[in-house]
């Protein structure tokens, strides 16, 4: 098998030395099967061991290898160098997130948001072991399944200019996961999560750019979660407005 070479331009940032990030170009040999992630690993192993980036599973499961390739958010383990040849690649850390070092971003903000939506089932009633498990029909499961596929890769945050402009916005994946639990027939946490949905920085921070759903590698369609919740937020407002005073307490 013949080996070809491709130029990979990487955005580098060393918080101890650099005042701002700058590009560095590496020449990387590749074959038909070489993923972009493997290209970066070649750089780290053979050319410059200080290059910093995240990965783990190498199979679109862990969600840690997201980066911008030529301005588009991708999982680098499932993007292939051959698809960019004979052009070159420009690899940058995920947009809209602070750069920690080189290609690694600071995920703290998302993790706090994820925690805030209570991403677990808040049961309707307390059940003892004797009561057995909560049962769910396939049709009930169907209502949330797509949203439960999220791997927290943050590609959707890198796609969302509203999040880039105001990082207070809850953002696509956190809203998708919020919707995932709210739509679960076993869950009774909707009222607790509603203030997050209703906030100016909840669903109303979204202007339906729609790029989040375009780049999501798992078909989660976070834009639909956000925008369906605009409907529920409106209804929630309306009913609270209509209900006699104190009725919602």
């Amino acid at each position: 098998m013949t080996q070809q070479e491709i130029n990979i331009e990487v955005l580098r940032y060393n918080p101890e030395k650099d005042s701002e990030p700058s590009y560095e170009t590496f020449q990387v040999p590749f074959s038909h099967e070489t993923s972009v992630l493997q290209g970066l690993q070649f750089i780290k192993d053979q050319l410059d061991g200080s290059l910093t980036f995240r990965w783990s599973c190498r199979m679109e499961i862990c969600g840690s290898c997201g980066m911008m390739i030529n301005g588009v958010p991708h999982l680098t383990c499932s993007a292939f160098l051959r698809d960019y040849y004979p052009g070159k690649l420009r690899i940058e850390p995920l947009s809209h997130l602070p750069i920690e070092r080189d290609l690694a971003v600071d995920q703290t903000d998302f993790l706090q948001k994820l925690e805030s939506i209570q991403p677990y089932i808040i049961p309707k009633e307390t059940r003892s072991l004797e009561d057995g498990p909560f049962k769910q029909t396939p049709a009930q499961r169907e209502r949330f399944y797509q949203f439960s596929e999220c791997i927290n890769c943050l590609l959707c945050y890198a796609a969302c200019p509203q999040y880039g402009l105001d990082s207070g916005f809850l953002g696509p994946a956190a809203m998708a996961l919020l919707h995932r639990y709210n739509s679960d027939s076993r869950d009774a946490g909707q009222a607790e999560r509603m203030p997050i949905v209703n906030a100016q920085e909840g669903v109303w921070g979204c202007t339906l750019v729609g790029y989040c759903s375009e780049v999501c590698p798992k078909g989660v369609d976070p834009a639909s979660a956000v925008n369906r919740n605009k409907v529920s937020s409106t209804l929630d407002y309306f009913f609270r407005f209509m209900a006699p005073r104190g009725a919602s307490e």
């Binding site: 809209h96 602070p98 402009l165 790029y211």
Partner: peptide
């Protein structure tokens, strides 16, 4: 541990960066 100094990139001109945003 090395000092942390996360770098936030500017958003100026964001909508020109991607055809998807231009169409938006």
């Amino acid at each position: 541990m090395a000092a942390r100094r996360p770098y936030v990139r500017p958003m100026a001109g964001w909508w020109r960066r991607n055809p998807f945003y231009i169409f938006y």
